[in-house]
């Protein structure tokens, strides 16, 4: 919105003596100097990318039918280890097997992306609803705002885990998408409130007022003028939401309320707990999914921190 056109040439002509400042100013236009190339964001994205790649490529490289009951020998450790019965691991099952004859590598290949997918779908749906309701409430105000606020406040107070458990037990079969949608049903109020707060402070900005004066429609102002300014913030919020959704999903799965047959990381931990895997020294059964979940959460945390820095230049400067 600046009224004076500033180019590298004019900057150089006006301040030839201050070499350092020139470099810094020039640097801003370096194509690699974009806040989106944030190291934390990239690290997090790489971690999540590797886990997803494992799921995508694994399906082509490994027989995923081995992820189901009675498909492999029971209780085998990874190669190089022995189980409590003295059986040695074999390379046909490089991550071992559990006590119903599921191959752990196949379980991980199917389970890791499944757990992630639940988080992403739930967060997408939750954020989508949150964006629409948050913008509507914040921008329109009045009774619409009060109504949306009331509904979201009420929804936040509902103990979602309890409701999810009841719904889960009523369904014939819980699959990945059902689980994601169930969690999404409780993951929209938080983004709604946060976005509403942002919109409230933003709607008094000059450019919004200007857009209003120039006759832009409410929808255009909300989604064409204001939303682009919130994108880094929305991404950060999205990642936070996805983390929360994965956590909720894993929580349900670990309680035995996840998908019955489709492998998930939480469900695998549940099976391990049910079958005394800790006592039986079957560390590959509970340890590998736990490690993967921890890695996944660390990846999401890095992405979240990265987006935080992109959205907040002060954080970026302090980290530099």
């Amino acid at each position: 919105m600046s009224t004076v056109e500033t180019t590298p040439e004019t900057v150089a002509a006006e301040a030839p003596a201050d070499d350092g400042q020139l470099k810094r100013t020039m640097g801003r236009f370096n194509q690699w100097d974009t806040p989106w190339l944030n190291p934390k964001l990239l690290t997090g994205a790489a971690i999540i990318g590797i886990i997803l790649l494992l799921g995508v490529l694994g399906r082509f490289l490994w027989d995923t039918d081995l992820a189901y009951t009675a498909s492999s020998p029971l209780n085998l450790p990874p190669p190089g280890f022995v189980n409590t019965r003295g059986q040695e691991g074999i390379w046909e099952h490089p991550l071992g097997t559990e006590n119903s004859g599921r191959d752990m590598l196949a379980v991980i290949i199917l389970g890791a992306p499944n757990s992630f997918l639940i988080g992403v779908v739930a967060a997408t749906v939750g954020m989508g609803i949150g964006i629409v309701l948050g913008f509507t409430a914040g921008f329109l105000g009045g009774w619409v705002d009060e109504l949306i606020r009331l509904i979201s406040d009420v929804t936040i107070t509902i103990p979602s885990l309890m409701v999810l458990i009841v719904i889960q037990s009523a369904l014939r079969q819980v699959d990945i998408s059902t689980m994601a949608l169930l969690i999404a049903a409780f993951s929209w109020p938080s983004p709604t409130r946060l976005i509403r707060a942002q919109v409230l402070s933003m709607r008094e900005s000059g450019y919004v007022q200007m857009a209003k004066l120039s006759g832009s429609s409410t929808r255009d102002i909300m989604f064409r003028e204001m939303m682009p300014n919130l994108i880094p913030y929305l991404f950060a919020s999205f990642i936070g939401n996805a983390t929360g959704a994965i956590l909720a999903a894993v929580g349900l799965e670990t309680l035995g309320l996840g998908p019955q047959r489709v492998p998930t990381l939480g469900g695998t931990i549940y099976d391990a707990i049910q079958s005394a895997a800790l006592l039986r020294n079957m560390w590959w059964w509970w340890g590998i999914p736990t490690l993967l979940l921890a890695t996944m959460f660390i990846g999401l945390l890095f992405i979240n921190l990265g987006f935080d820095e992109i959205a907040n230049p002060r954080l970026r400067r302090s980290s530099q």
């Binding site: 409590t84 006590n99 707990i273 079958s275 005394a276 895997a277 006592l279 039986r280």
Partner: peptide, 23 residues
């Protein structure tokens, strides 16, 4: 089963109703 097994291995349970062979 994990609970049962842990308790019995620590002598905190005298009788368990049923266990898998591995446990």
């Amino acid at each position: 089963e994990e609970n049962r097994a842990q308790l019995m291995s620590n002598a905190q349970l005298d009788s368990v109703m049923n266990l898998t062979l591995g446990a």
